[in-house]
Design a protein around this nucleic acid. Structure first.
Lengths: 156, 156
DNA sequence: CTAATTTGGTTTCTTAACGCAACTCTATTT
DNA sequence: AAATAGAGTTGCGTTAAGAAACCAAATTAG
């Protein structure tokens, strides 16, 4: 983490990064998407220190990305499940996964390839699209000049 | 940053986060996408400490997300420009931006909405889609059992 | 009933990263 | 010659990350 916080930033990306912008949070969300639910699942799969995991899970719960569910089994058993907000990080995680695959090819193995249940085929590459459904790049976008006073759109 | 590095992880997301998974890097990339090029641009727009900015820019250059261009103007002038790899983070940044907008509404103002140059209209929400072009959620995907070792499928 | 496990955390302590401020260096402007 | 600007670097204090040990409730083993 850093000292500088972006809670009140008027930049959506900054606010988003404030919640999931550290090393572990998105990895935790990814593993949650892949089925991890219990403390030990995350701990073993990620190889993360327990105190850090506690902290990250608590923060993700605070931020409503995960919810903590007491499943009254043997021992103190809790499950951390994705909320709708957490599940909504799917495009972010997938975009990141695809970027990592494309530009930092796996050193030793195949990356995990995700398939759609209904078609059985690999999913598409995540793209930004215009209203016509045509993929666009960063060069195709602009921020409309909003002359409304009081509207701050800071760079972001 | 953290001590734990994921360079050699066989997880694409981990490798991606290794390059742009800190508080500042994606914000720097975002601002670069919005036109920031010079050291002072980033420094003033982001309010980041200069040594941290140096470090982040250098790392992004190392990772080929940005390239440093000497524009021989007055003083020592450099520009940091996005590479193709950097521009390819567009879907990641936009997905994050949209998530931040949706789930952490701006405290005081409208978030900036991005428009496509050719249509003049707002861009679509970034989604994960199957081969049919239908949007899918995390519940629709599965990891096919045991990819053949040595097989690399890039856009996972 | 007691001892050992499992799960989920906390505490301690070391190390590394962040962030401010001040300083450097080169080149340009006054 | 002095001042300004761009792009850093250096020092130093604060904070966060990480490993390993310790803690506590519920469970199973014996």
């Amino acid at each position: 983490m850093a000292k500088k916080r972006f809670d009140d930033s008027n930049c959506s990306v900054a606010r988003a990064l404030n919640q999931v912008g550290d090393w572990w949070s998105l990895l935790i969300v990814l593993h949650a998407m892949q089925g991890a639910r219990r403390f030990v699942d995350f701990q073993q799969e990620l190889g993360i220190a327990k105190n850090i995991l506690c902290d990250r899970l608590a923060r993700l719960v605070d931020n409503s990305v995960l919810k903590k569910v007491d499943v009254g089994e043997h021992g103190s058993r809790f499950e951390y499940r994705l909320t709708e907000k957490g599940r909504d990080l799917f495009p972010v995680v997938i975009a990141l996964l695809q970027w990592g695959d494309k530009w930092n090819p796996a050193p030793n193995d195949a990356s995990l390839d995700l398939c759609d249940r209904t078609t059985g085929q690999s999913i598409q590459t995540v793209q930004v699209m215009n209203t016509q459904g045509e993929p666009i790049t960063v060069r195709d976008v602009f921020v409309p000049a909003v002359p409304v006073p009081g509207t701050k759109q800071d760079s972001a």
